[in-house]
Every structure is written in C-alpha cells, then in structure tokens.
C-alpha cells in the first residue's frame, strides 16, 4: 500500500503524519524538538518503522516548518514548503469551503484567508509572542495546572476577569494582581483566554476579513478555553479538525503526494537513513567582509548541502538539487 509521509519540524514540536492514497491519516506522531531537529526526526522515523510493516511503502515525503530545508536534505524530500501554504492545504482538504484559518502554535501564530480554496491573504505575528502556546504553557506551569486542564477550567468561569492582553509581561502581572485580589482561578483563566484572543484578532488579524467557515488549528486549539473565547469574539462557531495539532505535517504529506504524481518517483532515502550518521558544521566564510555563517550538512562524512552564504559561493559548490521552494 502506498503511503505518504509529512514532517513538520517547528521550534517547539516535530510532527509526523503518514497518510494513505485517499489522504486518510494512518498514524500521527507528536514529538518535542528540544532544539535538536535531526535527532528528533530520526526518533520519529524509528517510531514509525515499528508501526508500519512491509505492506506499507513510503511513496512520497514532504517537509515544512522552520527546519524544513534541513529535514528535506536528511530524509530526501520530494517537496519543501513553508508552513503557511502547508497549513492552508491541510485545512482546505478537511473543510473544502474554509475561508479563514486561525493557527496558533508554540512560538508563532498566523491567520490565513482563503477564497475558493486558494490563499488570498495571510499574516504572521511579527515581534510579539503573546498568545502563543509557549506563553500558555508558562502560565499553566506557574499556576501549577497541567496545560491539558487549563482550558477546561476556563469553561467553568462565571465571570471572566479582564486581563491586559497586549503584552505577555503585562498579562502576567495583571493575572498575579487579580489572583491576589481573590478572583477565582476559572475566572482568571477565562479572562486570559479572552485577552489572548483579543490580542490575536487586533494584531495578527488586523485588517483581515474573517469569514466563516473558520478553522482553528495548531497546538493551542486543544485548549477549550481558547476555542470558546474565539467563537464568542467572532460571534460564530469555529471548527477544530480532528488532527488539529498536526495540520502542517498533513499539508506537507498532501503536497508530497501531488508532487510525486507529477514526477513519478520519490527521493526518499528509505528507512535505513536512521542508521546513517548526519552531522552539521558551520564556519565563517572569509571570502569577503560579509563574513557569512555557512552551514554544511554531511551524511557519513560526505557533504550533502550547504547554505547561509549570500553570494552563492558555497551553496553552488554542490549540485543544487534542493532549492528553496
């Protein structure tokens, strides 16, 4: 049976999805990247190896996320796509008439506007991390609540308090203050969710025409409090797809399937790659005053790819098989 692999290597998590020819998800994995993308991807592949027997044949691989180029070189990807396109492709597959995608991940948040199944506009948070998964994680830890429970507590709120949402530093001090005043925990958490949604809509969603159907995805979509706050603020229902946490990987798998259909074969190195040694090194080029930091990726000591130089001296020195898509 032909299956397709999508890998999304983000700053916080690494997700892998295996889907069949009909784009049904067979397996999905969620791992913590912990700053070591190569090791994490290998770990994921080892886990998948145990789940997939000989009947399955990986016929295409797509990568996305901030480490998409690195991962593509390691696994031999058929397509390398930015996470905005990947997320939109996955959402449009599951909800064909989707017009708005709200995506909140570990370190970034984005809004994607689609019309007739094609992206017409998008925005990502620029310099502010307020409202992303990392901040919610941090607040849950501070309150001593597992992050999974965090959202459910918000649903018990009777009277959400007002929390400043513009900056996570303001939000935190506001929360502490309200706690000391004696407000109940559910009211504070619900207030925080409302503040984060307000910040998202005014910052990332500024000037965008948000029409339903609206899909809410990314790790933060697990949070029931955030789901409720979004549907309240937008005055309409928000759809959270079943595989909300691995939508980027699903999108990458779909794109890989499309690419392989066109070109007929896959570049996938095969599962044996987990036994190979991949190393990266970086050096400062002394060719000119720019002093670019060049990254080199090698497999068993053989250089596979180089990048990071502005002039192309190192990048072009190896056969240019993988270019930024």
């Amino acid at each position: 049976m032909r299956v397709y692999l999508g890998i999304d290597v983000g700053s916080v998590s690494t997700n892998l999805v295996v889907m069949d020819e009909r784009r049904e998800i067979l397996h999905s994995l969620y791992l913590r990247t912990q700053g070591q993308p190569i090791r994490t991807v290998k770990q994921g592949l080892v886990k998948l190896q145990a789940l997939l027997d000989d009947r399955y044949e990986i016929s295409g691989v797509g990568t996305t996320g901030s480490a998409r180029n690195l991962t593509a070189v390691i696994v031999g990807a058929d397509t390398v796509k930015n996470e905005i396109t990947a997320h939109a492709v996955a959402a449009a597959h599951l909800v064909p008439d989707v017009q708005t995608v709200l995506e909140i991940g570990g370190q970034d948040s984005k809004i994607i506007i689609l019309r007739n199944g094609v992206i017409s506009d998008f925005a990502m948070n620029t310099v502010c991390a307020a409202g992303t998964g990392s901040f919610l994680d941090q607040q849950a830890a501070r309150l001593g609540i597992p992050v999974e429970e965090f959202g459910k507590l918000a649903l018990q709120a009777e009277n959400p308090v007002r929390i400043a949402g513009r900056c996570s530093v303001f939000a935190e001090s506001d929360m502490i203050h309200k706690q000391q005043m004696g407000h109940s925990l559910p009211d504070i958490i619900a207030g925080l969710c409302e503040a984060l949604v307000r910040n998202y809509l005014n910052n990332v969603g500024k000037g965008k025409e948000i029409l339903s159907p609206i899909v809410f995805q990314g790790g933060v979509a697990a949070n029931a409090g955030m789901r409720q706050a979004f549907s309240r603020a937008l005055g309409t229902e928000v759809i959270v797809p079943e595989h909300f946490g691995v939508m980027g990987a699903l999108g990458a798998a779909i794109l890989a399937q499309e690419t392989v259909r066109q070109k007929g074969n896959t570049n996938f190195r095969g599962m044996s790659l987990v036994d190979q040694e991949f190393t990266t090194r970086s050096f400062e080029c002394s060719g000119c005053a720019n002093a670019c930091e060049v990254i080199e990726i090698s497999m068993d000591g053989q250089p596979l790819a180089r990048w990071g130089d502005r002039c192309g001296k190192w990048e072009n020195s190896l056969s240019a098989s993988l270019k930024i898509s």
Binding site: S66, K81, N82, I84, T85, I119, F122, M124, T126, I324
Partner: peptide, 26 residues
C-alpha cells in the same frame, strides 16, 4: 495581494524567508 513586513533588531532571516515564500506561493 499586499503584505506588510516590519523590521526591527532581528537578524535571523528564516522568519522573513517563510513569509516571502508563502507570499510568492500565493
């Protein structure tokens, strides 16, 4: 299509490249 990019002290180019790529894709 119009996209706005604000620049500040960041010197990491990955975030910019992602946005540019997505915009060109669109």
């Amino acid at each position: 299509p119009v996209m706005t990019i604000y620049v500040d002290e960041q010197t990491g180019e990955a975030g910019l490249i992602t946005r540019l790529e997505a915009f060109v894709d669109l």
